[in-house]
C-alpha cells in the first residue's frame, strides 16, 4: 500500500472519530453505485471537505475529487501533500470564483476524466446559521455537463464541531445528509437554477 493510501485511510478514520459522522442517503441505493456525481454542500468548517469525502463508500472516495481553493491548499508542505496527493483535490483559483473560465475548464476536464467532484458553491465558509447565496460555478458545470447528477449534501453540526476561526475541535456528532440529485432543466436560467439548488440544501437541513 502506498503512503498516500495509508494516509487516506487514516484521515478518513480520524475524521469519522472526531465528527462521528455517518452519511445519511435519502436514496440509499445512490451511495452504492459508481455513478458520476457532483456533490455540493453548505460550508461552515475546515472539516467539511473531509467529512463528505470520508462518509462516501471507499470505492467512491478514490474517484471523488474535492474542489479546493488554491490560495489556501496549494501551499508547500504537508497541506499540499494532503490536499493534492491524499485527497486528490482539484485546486482552483478563488479570485474569480468557480465561474471563471480557467477554473471551470479544470472542473469539466475532471468530469470528462470520469471523476466525481465535491463543491462548496457558497465559495467561503459561513457561520453555520444560514446558507449563503450560491455562486454560479455550479450552474456552469450543470450547463456544460447536463448528464452529471448534482447531489445536495447538507452538513449538520460541523460549524459546532470546528467553527470558523477555531483550531481545536469539539467532538460533537456531525451528519452528512445526501439528498436526491437535481439536474438543470432545459429552459432554466442561472438564477432560477441556483435558487432551486440552494432550496434543495435548506430543505435537507429542515427535514433532518
Amino acid at each position: 500500500m502506498s503512503k498516500e493510501a495509508i494516509a487516506a485511510g487514516l484521515l478518513a478514520g480520524v475524521t469519522r472519530l472526531i465528527t462521528g459522522v455517518r452519511g445519511h442517503w435519502q436514496d440509499p441505493s445512490a451511495g452504492q453505485d459508481g455513478a458520476q456525481r457532483v456533490y455540493f454542500a453548505n460550508h461552515s468548517s475546515h472539516l467539511d471537505t473531509l467529512v463528505i469525502w470520508s462518509s462516501l463508500p471507499k470505492a467512491l472516495r478514490a474517484r471523488t475529487r474535492p474542489v479546493a481553493a488554491a490560495d489556501y491548499w496549494d501551499r508547500p508542505g504537508l497541506r499540499r501533500w494532503l490536499a493534492l496527493r491524499v485527497l486528490n483535490a482539484l485546486p482552483v483559483e478563488r479570485a474569480g470564483g468557480c465561474g471563471s473560465r480557467d477554473a471551470l475548464h479544470h472542473l469539466i476536464a475532471a468530469l470528462d476524466a470520469g471523476d466525481s467532484l465535491i463543491l462548496f458553491p457558497e465559495g467561503t465558509r459561513g457561520d453555520g446559521q444560514a446558507i449563503g447565496e450560491l455562486r454560479s460555478g455550479l450552474y456552469h458545470v450543470a450547463r456544460e455537463r447536463p448528464q452529471v447528477e448534482l447531489v445536495p449534501v447538507f452538513l449538520e453540526n460541523l460549524s459546532r464541531i470546528l467553527p470558523k476561526g477555531e483550531v481545536l475541535p469539539v467532538p460533537l456528532i456531525g451528519r452528512a445528509h445526501f439528498g436526491l440529485s437535481i439536474r438543470l432543466a432545459p429552459d432554466e436560467d442561472r438564477k432560477a437554477f441556483l435558487t432551486r439548488a440552494r432550496l434543495a440544501l435548506t430543505a435537507l437541513g429542515d427535514r433532518k
Binding site: G20, D127, N157, P163, E166, L168, V170
Partner: peptide, 18 residues
C-alpha cells in the same frame, strides 16, 4: 457527546465545551 450534540449551543460555548 450525545447530550451536547442534541442540546443547542452557541458559537461562544466552543472553548468551554473543549
Amino acid at each position: 457527546r450525545e447530550l451536547i450534540t442534541l442540546t443547542p449551543t452557541r458559537r461562544a460555548d466552543h472553548r468551554t465545551l473543549f
